[in-house]
Design a protein around this nucleic acid. Sequence first.
RNA 1: GCCCGAGUGGCGGAAUUGGCAGACGCGGAGGUCUCAAAAACCUUUGUCGAAAGACGUGUGGGUUCGAGUCCCACCUCGGGCACCA
Length: 847
Amino acid sequence: MADRIPVYDAEAIETKWQGVWDREETFKAREDSTRPKKYVLEMFPYPSGDLHMGHARNYTIGDAMARQARMRGFEVLHPMGFDAFGLPAENAAIKNKTQAGKWTYANMDQAVATMKRMGFSYDYDRLVRTCDPDYYKWGQWAFLKMWEKGLAYRATSPVNWCPSCNTVLANEQVVDGKCWRCGSVPEKRELSQWYLRITDYAQELLDDLDQLDGWPENVKAQQRNWIGRSEGAEIDFALADADGKATDRLITVFTTRPDTLYGTTFFLLPPESKLAAELVEGTEYEQAYQELKKSVEQVSSVERQGSGREKHGVFTGRYVINPLTGKLLPIWVADYILLDYGTGAVMGVPCGDQRDFEFARTYGLDIPPIIAQKDDPLYEQLKDQQEMVVTSVDWDQAMAAEGYLIQSGPFTGMKGGKHSEAVDAIIAYLGERGIGRKTVQFRLRDWLISRQRYWGNPIPMIHCDCCGDVPVPYEDLPVTLPEDLDLGAGETLAEYAPFFETTCPKCGKPAKRITDTMDTFTCSSWYFLRYCDPHNAELPFSKESVDRWMPVDNYIGGIEHAILHLLYSRFWTKVMRDLGMIDLDEPFTNLLCQGMVKDAKGETMSKSKGNVVPPSSVIGPYGADTMRLAILFIAPSEKDFNWDEEVVAGANRFIKRAWRTVWGLAQTASADAALKVGSLDAAGKELYRRMHELGLRCTYDFDRYQFNTAISAVMELVNDANAYLNNVPAQKRDAALCFCVARCIVAMLSPIIPHWGEELYHEALGLTGSAYDEPWPTFDEEAAKASTVQIAVQLMGKVRGRIDVPADATKDELEAAAKEALADVLEGKTVRKVVVVPGRLVNIVAN
RNA sequence: GCCCGAGUGGCGGAAUUGGCAGACGCGGAGGUCUCAAAAACCUUUGUCGAAAGACGUGUGGGUUCGAGUCCCACCUCGGGCACCA
């Protein structure tokens, strides 16, 4: 072994090992391995340029997991790819007068170079780019399968249209009332669009969240919120004719509060309602209705939403009949009613609902009390009152939601509220008469996937004037995206005849291709399945390969995908399961959402703010390993952190110190000598013990992905090893111990600073092969135990002293030792109780 | 309004799940080496106090021999959903 310690030259070492890993295909996932599998996956990037700090953090976390898993004996699948379709490429192409593909491929090449420079252990043979025809072909294939199952369909309805992106958006992509990508306020437009029927899976998507023990609570909560399940009832109201007599025509409402049916004094429809338009047509009420409808269209969705907004409505001149009381209820059109939730019709209960209350106040409608709490004077007055005698009250706000029914016919006196006995009783009563039924509503809407943009996966459908919408035959897939549009001149797919002109596969007559492309989130909903079998030319993936690798054991990515990508991927997985493609309910077993990297002041990094710290600015002066260590050490992975140059410098200092320590140990190390613990001197025994203690801690922290404390455990071991080197003269050091400790330090840091680890593994320890063929060291609880421990001696729970005791002392011995230590304090007091926690403390209760 | 989180030194953060609060690192102070500086190494560093000691995990209560950890009430901050009937 070398006598002199070489200088730590990060760049030389990193270049060297990156070359070796590449050449030797060290990180290729092997299909024929007999090891158990582990699938570690980071959310693939959108190639909008080079990687930024957020990517560096995301991939460093995943890489540490992947490398450690391999050392723990797993065959690891750790792939990478690019979510390559999308608007920024198209916008850049328009601006630079180039092709979207050209721009995208150049960015991907750059990003791959940076990934390699960071030393990420990807199996690059499995690189997937969603804009490659042999990938997006299978997205089209999946669309056709969904079409066949009725899960893909076309519908005309008001949709969110982003005027800046010139395309429609999914509900999930309207964030805070604005386009998720550009921040413009979308307009409502009535358009014919393509949807995936995700609502068919609403209940399952909700229920299966309970299986996802490895997901953060807040992500599951967000998904539950988004799916938005409400239990309630549908109730049929008969439309009245001009004389107030019931007609055959029924209008159904959805309500979560059927118990408040007796308090219904009006009936509500949304402005977009076709029924409302029909009811007022040709009447004196039509003009006011049209004005309201127009004013709603002019108001943006941001303004229209929000409970603070004043409510507007118009009367339609028509009535429905309350099925319980037989009373006539005026039908109003109101701007706070949503077309696409529930049945699109609402019963107005001003006493029980704050919104209905405000509406009733504005338009002078009755507010009859039908629910009261027991301490309410109204309750005393009306608790046995079945008929309506108090028809309106003069309150400031709606009644409490819970209470007892009053003036509610036979249900008077029952407990009311959500999921109350009154709810059940009224549903049962309505059910017997066939005018109401229990039902469940979801807030989740079907997934609108058409985009009127070029750079995406074409929807594989043809519209024929004779045959309607006809799927492209499977053998004609993929529908290839043309590469020679003049984007700079504003050309779109819809105007590009070579693309849309075709013939109908059914009747052979001239027909037009659908020129919408699919939402890019369709591409990212199944890429993790493609990684299992990336070169399959017959199918999107084989069942065997998915059975081999799925589910993803560790999925790492940003919290911003809590709803969008993570919900869509769960849906897609369930669809693939129902198509018989896979046997899997959920794609991602464990999910880690890493925090954001902000600048030193805590601001988010952005090009417009000019505060971006590019990864290259750290890799350049310090090297990739320092970058990786700093990122993992600065904070727990889920937390945001502020970029701090001092932490980087500190990380680099530790790497250099650990480098010298390992080399220092290596100078007296021997790989051949057997370690005889019994014959070690005191310093050696203690170092050996600490190695086990800290190794256990480090392993435990790796197992729970808490890298900051895993690193601190190794730091302690390095400190201890240094103390050993400083205090024990070279000729007295134990060669086997030195080797063992050095090897443990190298092994435990290798997942985090891999080039450093590989270099020392070979050059300092003189080992061959790869550090990643080295199994993770095993540590022993017994060996970690100290012969004597210091425990606290407490009086009434307060620490009064500390004593050194043998680790194996009995409870009685500990009690005796503690009493002795506190003898002078205890004098004159009576000991009531003694609590002994071996290895920790003795607490004496005395007075 | 509803639903999730989180509040610990000057800072990032630990605390093996009810058992010695502040591990590890940053920063600070002092020192060694040097003509000097950098680097490196050593000592020290929760607050108050000269010391003994006292006080300390957002606030106020509670349970317990013992609470950062559990329970109740509240405050503050962050995030998500939101005119969803």
